[in-house]
């Protein structure tokens, strides 16, 4: 069972996306598509023929596979329902973030490959956001890692040293901003737009169609679920099982579902209640989150909790 944890992320990530969309629709007074809609969309895209730009090179064709592969490989590292995670041998939380970054690097290259202004714009903005997010995300993870005495995710999840202390709350708030930025949600990016001037993530995917688009979208859902899982592993590890017995797994799966539902609700709430920010206001949001992460670290050093 513990070997198949990552399959949960691969299989259920479109469902999580569907749940977020449904909750968002309900909060905005709409009915919204069913929670299984992302599966139908992916299936339909896989069946479709493709139109490719003749400007593109092999980088464009290789990118969907690389993005999907690297995200799935990153998903193997994260303990989902039990802290016994055999693939933890691959690396720690730093390795996880760098494996995700491989996907982003290639996605940005693919954005430039078709030779259109939209793709370049998307790539440029994505890399700029990454520059602002990365230090803040690392710093908030450092606080958790230092207090747990390890950067191994399963070990951070099993140690509950700083739960609900001031430094923990500060680090968590910085990390949530990081998740919003990384998954391309309002107020950083609007996932539902195809308006040229505002899109970041969608801009890079504009030239994709059919099977490639399906892979890119699916990888994006996976990245979202992966980051949510990472957040609950690091900041709310309560309830994650530390053995692999049947009843323990069932209980821990139930708790995991609740946590994911809570994260989905949080994202839907933020998306429904905020407007998208102007791109050049982002440094103040993300810089503010960096200060939170820094304060969290200082608090931990000064207060020891």
């Amino acid at each position: 069972m513990e070997y198949l944890q990552f399959v949960i992320i691969i299989v259920f990530s479109p469902l999580l996306q569907g749940v977020i969309k449904k909750l968002k629709a309900n909060m905005q007074g709409r009915v919204g598509p069913g929670v299984f809609q992302p599966y139908y969309d992916l299936f339909r895209l896989f069946k479709k023929d493709m139109v490719l730009s003749h400007v593109t090179s092999w980088i464009f064709k290789a990118t969907p596979y690389i993005v999907f592969t690297s995200t799935a490989a990153a998903a193997m590292i994260v303990p989902v329902i039990t802290t016994i995670s055999p693939f933890g041998i691959m690396g720690d939380v730093i390795a996880l973030i760098y494996i995700i970054a491989v996907g982003r690097f290639f996605m940005a290259l693919a954005g430039l490959d078709a030779g259109t202004a939209f793709g370049g714009e998307g790539s440029s903005r994505e890399m700029t956001v990454a520059i602002l997010v990365e230090p803040m995300m690392m710093l908030s993870i450092f606080t958790a890692a230092i207090s747990a005495g390890s950067t191994n995710i399963a070990r951070i999840a099993s140690s509950q040293n700083i739960l609900y202390s001031p430094s923990h709350i500060l680090a968590l708030s910085a990390f949530i901003v990081a998740i919003i930025a990384e998954t391309g949600r309002i107020p950083v990016d609007n996932p539902d737009t195809h308006l040229e001037l505002t899109m970041i993530h969608e801009g890079m995917l504009l030239e994709y169609s059919g099977k490639y688009l399906a892979l890119m979208e699916w990888a994006h859902y996976m990245k979202q679920m992966l980051l949510f899982t990472l957040a609950v592993d690091i900041f709310f590890p309560i309830g994650i099982s530390s053995d692999t017995g049947f009843s323990a797994i069932v209980l821990s799966s139930g708790i995991y579902c609740l946590k994911m539902f809570f994260m989905a609700g949080l994202m839907a709430l933020i998306e429904s209640s905020r407007a998208k920010m102007r791109f050049f206001q982002l440094p103040s949001l993300l810089g503010g989150a960096f200060v939170l992460a820094l304060l969290s670290l200082l608090t931990y050093i000064m207060m020891g909790k």
Partner: peptide, 25 residues
């Protein structure tokens, strides 16, 4: 460590530029 993370992200942006602008499109 945070500075190193910033450097890493900036380097990635820089080489997306270097490779993307000269070899792609």
């Amino acid at each position: 460590g945070a500075a190193l993370a910033l450097t890493g992200a900036l380097a990635a942006a820089c080489f997306v530029k270097a490779f993307g602008i000269s070899f792609l499109g």
